[in-house]
Design a binder for these strands. Structure first.
Lengths: 191, 191
DNA sequence: GTCTATACCAAGATAGAC
DNA sequence: GTCTATCTTGGTATAGAC
């Protein structure tokens, strides 16, 4: 048996270059219209060469979304709790429509239990839900959040609100989704 | 000039048969995995014959969603206002996972302004938003809804909540999405 | 019964995943 | 390169208005 040696430094760098390029191409052409062919051309690789790094098109897009989560976390390190983090992310989404389209489409498609990225979203939703519920409990203890609201319910609803606003923002929304999200949070503080 | 004669009785019947069959096949196999070939076979047509009626696969799926909206409206005629209608639809969605997958995926994909069904969703969202805002105003006037909530904001947020719950329901949700939706409505009544 | 738009099919062009 | 998917082209057969 060959023992796994892990990626070489060159491979790591190429991976990052591919992720950056994928982000850029997706932002311009959208998710559905971005082919592996086009992506390969953008980084100077053959299609086979590109897929060597990520296995399938889907795993590549999953990697792009993981990279975005990571980037958001480090962009908003100073935000006090995960409810605030979600609000900041919703606001930031307004400036990256290509990523919003990727996230919306991909999270809907991966709803199929046989989709390669299904488990990624199961884990991601569970983690966010748990951390939002913690934040809701902390805010309730501090007296800055509706005491009658069930934390788990609030957590699930806030995620749904964020996801749903990302979809609606692709159509003609009369207001800024981020302002809307903040307004709903205000309602929950006062009820 | 060729004057349009409209569809023959046979064509009208076949159209309905196709929509019914599409609903069933999509409910079983999901949206992404349903091919025009499979759909054509299910109604005893060639692919070209199938596409003769709807032009493209996308227009066929749009027709399926229009038929669903129509079916929901007649299923819930006795529901007093459109907020109640949305709540009833969310509850009903729990029994038709294939349609939920179709709706989630398709509404995300059609976010692309060049998608053939983009305008359908623009109109649909605008209509639902307007009717939900009317319902919120009526409930506020009747004293059964938070007076501090802006009706337009509530309308957009309720749609987002419904859409987002449809996505999350495809993963491991700890609670029933319909109960969750009702709980959020309760919070809005008391605030 | 004539006429032509509608209903439908066979084959293939095109394009993307892998 | 191979396989699979959508959609077009170019046709024939039939419904149904007149």
């Amino acid at each position: 048996m060959a023992t796994s040696r892990g990626p070489y430094a060159k491979g790591v760098a190429k991976r990052e270059e591919i992720l950056r390029a994928a982000l850029e191409v997706i932002a311009r052409h959208g998710y559905r219209k971005t082919s592996t062919r086009e992506l390969a051309a953008a980084v100077g690789l053959s299609e086979a060469g590109l897929l060597h790094y990520f296995g399938t098109k889907e795993q590549l897009f999953e990697a792009v979304l993981r990279a975005r989560d990571e980037a958001d976390r480090s962009r908003f390190v100073d935000v006090p709790d995960s409810i605030g983090l979600l609000a900041a992310a919703v606001r930031h989404n307004g400036s990256v429509p290509g990523l919003v389209e990727l996230y919306s489409t991909f999270s809907a498609e991966a709803g199929d239990p046989e989709h390669k990225s299904h488990d990624y979203f199961v884990d991601r939703y569970a983690a966010i839900r748990s951390s939002l519920a913690d934040a809701a409990r902390a805010r309730q203890a501090a007296g800055t959040f509706s005491p009658s609201a069930d934390p788990e319910t609030v957590a699930t609803a806030l995620i749904a609100l964020s996801d749903g606003l990302q979809i609606q923002s692709q159509y003609d929304l009369p207001a800024d989704p981020a302002d809307l999200f903040d307004n709903v949070l205000d309602l929950l503080r006062d009820s």
